[in-house]
């Protein structure tokens, strides 16, 4: 394989990663990262900032009905 072909291969891999990001899939947080400064809603409808979870070991699992 020529250097040029390898370079094109590398560029293709990089391009695919860019495409994936462009499709909207954000990277997952990494160990050591702080809990994101975003909010949801508790079951009673009140705002629920995730930063309120500090102070305890906390497990967060994602899901939905379908």
């Amino acid at each position: 394989m020529t250097v040029t072909a390898r370079l094109f291969g590398l560029l293709a891999i990089l391009a695919s990663g860019v495409t994936l990001t462009a499709q909207g899939r954000a990277p997952m947080p990494s160990p050591g990262d702080p809990i994101p400064s975003v909010s949801g809603f508790s079951e009673d409808g009140s705002e629920f900032p995730l930063e309120h979870l500090k102070g305890h070991f906390t497990v967060i699992a994602f899901g939905c009905l379908t």
């Binding site: 954000a26 997952m28 050591g32 990262d33 702080p34 809990i35 994101p36 500090k54 967060i60 994602f62």
Partner: peptide, 27 residues
């Protein structure tokens, strides 16, 4: 916002320590 901040996975799982630092993340 939460989905985006955590990487847009469908069934991911995260463990944070009491300081709010991420210990482990599973997609």
């Amino acid at each position: 916002d939460i989905k985006h901040a955590f990487g847009d996975r469908n069934n991911s799982e995260f463990l944070f320590d009491p300081e709010g630092k991420l210990i482990s993340a599973r997609d």
